[in-house]
Design a protein around this nucleic acid. Structure first.
Length: 376
DNA sequence: GAGTCGTGGGA
DNA sequence: TTCCCAAGACT
């Protein structure tokens, strides 16, 4: 590990900057991928793509993007859509607050900006879900404004170009990199230049085993010159997910199943799923936990068999899930965040993947049990 | 500044 | 299996 750089920021010379701009844009013109959000410069479509691409791979986003802009072609369509429909279109993509924020921001654009996504950095940054990177991406790509769009790709590229040893997991580093990046952006094609930086990071200047052989700017890269490309960028490691034991209830009343809407704000906040009890290892037996929890709602159930187990990993949590079957004995009116749903209607709900997996598991076991019951 | 917030893919 | 992620934002 090398020493940290002093406080000063890299000061690229004007001649170096001109070369970088020319080589990068030439390379981009010849190597850019034909992505669906690059078909035009509709600010709304650029916006949708940038939100979906936050912490999400291009290949994962493409089908969601196609379906989303087909369902909501304009910011007006999105603003007028029911939230359930917007969340349903996001099902399986993760980070669901992105969808809620995007929906709320679309309404804001309609009400405050007459349906036109604002061109001012201060205004666009005020929209929910639009941070420093996303604001810069939309303004530069859709409106040709020379503002930085510094994402993980760009930070990696800058870190290597300047042999910059600051930890890119820190917010302060991003701000400092934006200051330097701002000096690199050409007045003519700011959007293409920003995309070229990201494209280089995605295709050539990759996190591991970068393809320096075919890099269009290898002559201008300090890390390459010093053989440091594998050491940079510096990035502090995250903590492993905390393991948790979780019980899902597969609670039936005739051909209906009980769904629960998770509280806003937390993990999978506001999303529908099976009734869920999260507990530390060994704190409660599964059936008793379920029974006790539901009794507080005025719902009496008789715990049945264990339908199965599954494991699901989130960014910061690992769920060891046991799906427990139960039959309703008696119940009063439940609160709004509980709902009895026909099994055939489950597909109409936006269920996060962990619950989708559990539903599949439960229905399969249920079917198998039914067959067994008839046979024996 | 450090945690929180999903998912699926690849080394 | 385990780890690191992939075009970050919000609290």
């Amino acid at each position: 590990m090398k020493q940290n750089q002093p406080e000063s920021l890299p000061r690229p010379e004007a001649d170096w900057v001109r070369k970088i701009q020319k080589e990068l844009l030439t390379w981009y013109d010849q190597n850019r991928r034909g992505l669906p959000w690059r078909e035009n410069k509709d600010p709304y479509r650029i916006w949708v793509s940038e939100i979906m691409l936050q912490q999400t791979r291009v290949d994962t986003v493409i089908p969601y993007y196609e379906q989303f802009v087909s369902a909501f072609p304009t910011v007006k369509d999105l603003a007028e859509a029911p939230e359930d429909q917007v969340i349903k279109a996001w099902e399986g993509l993760g980070y669901y607050s992105r969808a809620r924020n995007l929906h709320a921001a679309a309404k804001e654009v309609m009400e405050q900006y007459k349906g036109e996504i604002p061109r001012e950095p201060e205004k666009i940054s005020r929209l929910k879900g639009v941070g420093s990177y996303t604001a810069g991406a939309i303004l530069s790509i859709a409106y040709d404004l020379p503002v930085p769009a510094v994402d993980g790709n760009v930070m990696r590229v800058l870190s290597r170009w300047f042999a910059w040893w600051e930890d890119i997991s820190k917010a302060a580093t991003r701000r400092r990199m934006e200051a330097v990046d701002r000096e690199l952006i050409p007045a003519e094609r700011p959007g293409d230049f920003n995309q070229a930086m990201m494209e280089l990071g995605a295709l050539i200047c990759t996190p591991v085993s970068p393809s320096c052989d075919t890099c269009p700017v290898r002559e201008l890269c300090q890390a390459q010159a010093e053989g440091l490309q594998e050491e940079l960028p510096v990035k502090k490691k995250g903590k492993p997910p905390v393991p948790m034991e979780v019980t899902f209830g597969w609670i039936r009343r005739g051909d209906q199943v009980l769904l629960h809407r998770r509280p806003q704000g937390g993990l999978l906040g506001g999303m529908w799923g099976l009734p869920t009890i999260e507990h530390w290892q060994g704190s409660l037996s599964l059936g008793e936990a379920l029974k006790t929890s539901l009794a507080e709602l005025g719902l009496k159930v008789e715990p049945g068999s264990i339908l199965g187990e599954l494991e699901h990993v989130f960014s910061h949590r690992r769920w060891y899930v046991t799906v427990v079957e139960a039959l309703e004995i008696s119940g009063e009116d439940l609160t709004e965040d509980y709902r009895w749903v026909q099994e055939s209607e489950l597909d109409n709900y936006a269920l996060p993947n962990v619950y989708r997996k559990a539903v599949q598991l439960a229905t399969e076991r249920q079917y198998a049990a039914g067959i067994q019951g008839r046979l024996f």
